[in-house]
Design a protein around this nucleic acid. Structure first.
Lengths: 232, 232
DNA sequence: CGATTGATTGATTGAATTCAACGTTCGTGG
DNA sequence: CCACGAACGTTGAATTCAATCAATCAATCG
């Protein structure tokens, strides 16, 4: 990957918005670039956070293995997102495991370097605050949904979020841009693959979505939004 | 309230840790102090955030009224916590409503002033980043619990969190330090008051807690922790 | 072409919600 | 000071939604 492309990734990252060129250069100099194949584990739950990672390309899943063996997916991250940010900012062990879903391009900075950069360039700190705040609000929103809504409704919301975040234009509508199984969806909304299978099958019959192996395409977005908000 | 007591509230707030005296003085000068009675609404969901509030004393509940009329409690905040922080930092409308549960003492800064302070004193920005990160991690944790655990388990976790945060020493054990109904607990863990009633009654019979009208005292913390983690 | 992974579908079970009724505590105003 | 209403709490029964179990089918990949 060429120097200019790396630079491209950098300026696109919300963390570095509004930075002067000199600062960007310094940020770039202290960064580490790497590419990893799908299924690579970026870090494990409990690890000490030694770097802040900015996702340049690809999809990363952040998840927890729970006591009874169940898995809960906390985040599905795409290009521009930060990985391990909370733990780096808090100086505490990583609360979850991060796995690459697709091949990824990562930019990273050592934890100590991250704090130095924030100190030297308050703009980065302000951007980080905005970014963490945005994710925090999303978590609060999902918590409320989990507390008050039925499974079908939560599946609708999950698919809408994924579509907005990493959706691709497809002939039939908007396609989720990575291989997504029933199990994956179940781990996002807090249910099991059987319920997801039944719901998707039902929607497919009614023409709301098109679905195949590891694939979901939203056709009738209106309808899905209605299910997400009304639950009907 | 005397000048020195206000100063006391300020230095205790995690947002202003590590600030030099001159900075603290400026922060103090631009702050507004007010006391509000229980049941006061600090702001409504959808309002424009015009101030950052630091809770000096009292309990504030942050909640959302959901579509079907159900209520979801997002946060129960105590002394030292920030209220409306996310919306101020993000420059977006307040995503939830904040209500004083007890009489409260508040310190606040106009939103614009808040941003100025962060800009002038990067330490405040760093503290804010740490604070928001901590809350974000707690939300992620609760999301996972909501996705994978049973109601009884979630009630146990909720009570443990409340005890740690605003618990008071009582003869029988640790008492939740504000009037807490079955309905309140239900809105925190995402269930209804009937289930909560049955669970608490069961625990009381087994001597794990003592409970009365608007009152919960944790007696056997070990046991509750076991229920929280094992679910058994 | 077998083996593996993902998806479907029916049957069963169980947890939690909902509905209904009643008991208790507390505050307030007659 | 008592009576009453309002808010809180309990409890049983019925119902529903979702989790679990089991079996089969389909697609993908070495």
């Amino acid at each position: 990957m060429s120097e200019s492309n790396v630079h491209e990734l950098l300026v696109r990252n919300p963390l570095f918005a509004g930075l002067p060129q000199t600062a960007l250069d310094e940020v770039l100099l202290t960064s580490k670039l790497r590419m990893i194949p799908a299924k690579t584990v970026l870090y494990h739950q409990g690890d000490t956070p030694n770097e802040l990672i900015a996702l340049g390309k690809g999809i990363v899943k952040v998840w927890q293995m729970r006591n009874g063996g169940a898995i809960a997916t906390i985040h599905v991250l795409g290009p521009g997102d930060l990985v391990g940010d909370i733990a780096v900012f808090r100086h505490v062990p990583l609360p979850a495991t991060a796995t690459a879903i697709t091949d990824c391009i990562l930019l990273s900075w050592a934890a100590a370097r991250t704090h130095e950069l924030i100190e030297r360039y308050p703009t980065i700190g302000a951007n980080a605050l905005g970014y963490v705040s945005r994710r925090s609000e999303e978590l609060a929103q999902r918590l409320c949904e989990m507390a008050t809504e039925r499974v079908e409704q939560r599946i609708a919301r999950a698919l809408l979020r994924l579509a907005d975040q990493i959706g691709l234009a497809a002939p039939e509508g908007v396609e989720i841009g990575y291989p997504l199984s029933r199990q994956d969806i179940a781990e996002i909304v807090g249910t099991d693959l059987y319920v997801v299978s039944r719901v998707l099958h039902d929607w497919a019959e009614r023409g709301v979505i098109v679905t195949g192996r590891l694939r979901v395409v939203l056709c009738d977005r209106q309808r899905i939004e209605q299910i997400a908000t009304d639950g009907k």
